[in-house]
Amino acid sequence: MLGLTAAVVAPAAPARAAVGHAELALRWAPIHHQDVDATGTHALGGRSDYLTAVDFDGDFNGRNNWDRTGQAGADLAARVYYSVVETPTHWYLTYLFFHPRDWTDHPFGETEHENDGEGALFAVERDGSPYGTLRGAVTVAHSDFFSYTPAGSSWTSGRESVDGTLAFQSSPHDAFQHPVTAQEAQGHGLKAHPQYRINGDGVVYYPSTVAETPSGANDRDVRYQLVDIFAPGGLWAQRATSSLFAHLGTFAGDTTGGCGQGTWSCGTNSANAPWGWDDGNDLPGRGEIATDPAKLAAEYFAVPGTLSRSYTRNPYTGAAAALKAAARTAPRVTD
């Protein structure tokens, strides 16, 4: 009788669950250096430079945010908004950093305004690893975009010249190296660190699942919570709320509460959400940094290999036609 020997088969390793969008956004969310100016009446001891949520005061009324920033009980816990758009070849992660005030302590020549929305787009190549590889970034500083690549990236300058190197830093709150961004005090332009840097007082924010409030104007370890732009009842769901948005992608803001007092002036309706961001000197249209990020990546960078323009997930798509039509007639807002 022929004897048979059973083959020894090792048990299959459990399949790793696909990385979710929230997990992906947390992985690549930047360590963020926020310069803080604690001097002057409008600084509120530094609180006017703290990151927070659009509805930090409990409502979606953009016209009372300046007024309520300095009130007792204002919740200035750190929150940063994000969205994830994907193609077969790349993930595109947009981050919105919101401040209730864009302010100044200069009496002449500068305008301040209620609400301030600046941010960044990170392009991540889907290379088969769980989180992919970050290849390029574009940041929003007022009405200009600035582009960056990490050291060793295969992406180079496209129609726009790369403005610098995107540095990485380890976080004490997880096991990852994160990109590093920075914002100036008062006007809150956003670039890759160290093109802006903390000068004296400042807050270093770390990505997390919890929202912490700085202990003061010079706190170097504050965790910020990521908030999905497309969460039910969230920022995107409020895009037609007239108390929050004056028109397409532009936050509503007025001159009440002391905005402009002792300075040159106070602007109204002067800050944008990601679908309102625009650099008037480049080819992509208003808001396309968020709504059509593959187009922007193809314009700003020379990308070897394949960069798909077909989206497998784009939560902005349902309103894309309306967004483009409205963008043609909406007034251009320069922060």
Rank of each mutant, 00 (worst) to 15 (best):
M1H: 09
L2R: 15
L4H: 15
L4P: 03
V8I: 10
A10H: 04
V19L: 02
E23D: 14
L24T: 07
R27K: 08
R27Q: 07
W28C: 08
P30E: 06
I31P: 00
Q34K: 07
G40P: 02
G45D: 12
W66G: 05
D67M: 06
D67L: 05
A72F: 13
A78C: 09
S83M: 02
V84E: 03
V85E: 11
E86V: 00
T94H: 14
F98C: 01
D102A: 11
T104L: 00
H106F: 08
F108R: 09
H113C: 05
E118G: 01
A120C: 15
A120Q: 15
A120F: 12
L121F: 08
L121Q: 13
E125R: 11
R126K: 14
D127Y: 09
Y131R: 07
Y131L: 06
G132F: 04
G132A: 02
T133K: 07
R135W: 02
A141L: 09
F145S: 05
T149V: 15
T149P: 02
A151L: 13
G152T: 06
S154I: 07
W155Q: 01
T156F: 04
S161K: 10
V162Q: 03
T165Q: 10
T165E: 09
H173D: 13
F176H: 14
H178N: 12
A182I: 08
A182P: 15
E184V: 15
Q186S: 14
H188W: 00
L190T: 02
A192P: 02
A192G: 12
Q195A: 11
I198A: 04
N199Y: 05
G202V: 06
Y206L: 09
S208F: 04
V210I: 13
S215A: 10
G216I: 01
A231G: 04
A237E: 10
Q238L: 02
A246F: 01
H247D: 15
F251N: 08
T256C: 01
G258L: 04
G258Q: 05
G260C: 10
Q261A: 07
S265Y: 15
N272R: 12
N272T: 12
P274T: 11
W275E: 01
D278Q: 13
D282T: 11
G287A: 06
I289K: 14
D292T: 12
D292W: 11
P293W: 00
L296E: 06
A298F: 00
E299G: 00
E299P: 00
F301K: 03
F301Q: 04
P304R: 14
R309Y: 12
Y311D: 00
Y311N: 03
G318K: 03
A319F: 13
L323N: 13
R332A: 09
T334Q: 15
D335I: 04
